[in-house]
Design a protein around this nucleic acid. Structure first.
Lengths: 206, 206
DNA sequence: CCAGTATTTGACCAGTCGGTCAAAGGAAGG
DNA sequence: CCTTCCTTTGACCGACTGGTCAAATACTGG
């Protein structure tokens, strides 16, 4: 049995491949059915493996889910990490919006995985939210507050500014079905970038 | 057995009370665990009834869920219905934002119930979205487009304007845990109304 | 108080779920 | 070819889930 601890790399190519297959399948299934709605049989067949074989690589359903979440948390925070205190304030913030929207477009399943978890009260993620996430946000909020104090951007509530960026960008991934149902045939991501740019440009211009 | 069809009123006070108890309990459970994550036992004990007793009033778990969704869809659309083509454009739109935010504050469980359903692809709601919802939105979009054409508000993409109102207001209900985790002790709904007012005022002013 | 109806429930069922296990199949080096 | 370790699986298990049913218990009008 392979060592299940997260720290050590898989030793063989087969392990690497199958762990990747499982992660990919689990992302697909968890993101469309939620934790409770996903079954090991679903994930197994999506991955092209048998159920006992899944459990050869991961000790439990919960473990697969947990690994997915913690892997993705980093990816999720990257765009915000890139917000640079040295850059031009408005350019930096608009670039953040753009990066975040692009990620929603490219990785909607990851977005929905988080959405599922958070909407249901984040039972398996609360410590992450209160830890890494809050720390990073606090740090960037300080930068935004400085910019506002120096008159480089409009005086907006920095926490709510960040919430609104998350909200507006992730909406296109998380509520994709609704957006498409309302738009009919039109492709949401054609217009979204320009629209969001306009929103935040108007909001932030002093 | 009571007649299960939705059209006729319950005949007795007991039926009325128990149906209400079940709906309330189901809202609580479905909104925090999703359809699959909710169990009849959960709902029953939350309602203070036995499981077979639930199924005396509703033919199935699915039926409870369906009735919740369709009852709530109306409530959900009301704020948008109230958007008045005759009123002052900016006042009307800001009032819509305010109503929507207020509803998120007062009925977060209802909001999360929808969020759960839509994030997972709206398997039990798609026809509603493509029907009533789209029709109402189309109608109101026409009004907003007129306002923009007449120069009474800024020229913004009307569909995306509506998406952004939904997104920003519902975020405070749907992602409540995350918002609170980041804010620490602060109460989100203290600052949100003024913030959102500022966002949309700046966006809509020609 | 009684008959008849509405309501409630304990016991039960078949299907599904996460997870186990022993045994069978591969891969690789000597 | 043989040994050793890695990988895969069919069969199985106990817990849980949605749902049924017949019997028991309240309610109601007469």
């Amino acid at each position: 049995m392979p060592d299940g601890s997260k720290t050590d790399r898989p030793r063989t190519r087969i392990q690497q491949r199958n762990r990747d297959l499982i992660a990919e399948a689990a992302l697909e299934v968890f993101s469309t059915h939620g934790f409770r709605g996903a079954t090991l049989d679903n994930i197994a067949s999506e991955a092209g493996l048998s159920k006992p074989n899944l459990l050869y690589y991961f000790p439990s359903k919960e473990a697969i889910h947990t690994q997915l979440l913690s892997t993705l948390m980093d990816t999720w925070l990257d765009p915000l990490r890139a917000l640079d205190a040295q850059g031009d304030p408005i350019t930096e913030l608009l670039a953040y919006v753009e990066r975040k929207l692009e990620i929603s477009r490219l990785y909607p399943r990851e977005s929905r995985l988080f959405a599922n978890e958070i909407v249901q009260g984040a039972p398996r993620m609360l410590t992450s939210l209160e830890g890494e996430l809050k720390d990073l946000v606090d740090e960037k909020v300080a930068i935004i507050r400085d910019w506002a104090d120096q008159g480089k951007i409009a005086k907006v509530h920095p926490y709510h500014l960040i919430f609104s960026i998350w909200s507006l960008t992730q909406h296109y991934a998380d509520f994709d079905v609704q957006v498409r149902a309302v738009l009919g045939g039109e492709e949401p991501f054609d217009e979204a970038p320009a629209y969001l740019r306009e929103v935040f440009l108007k909001l932030l211009t002093p």
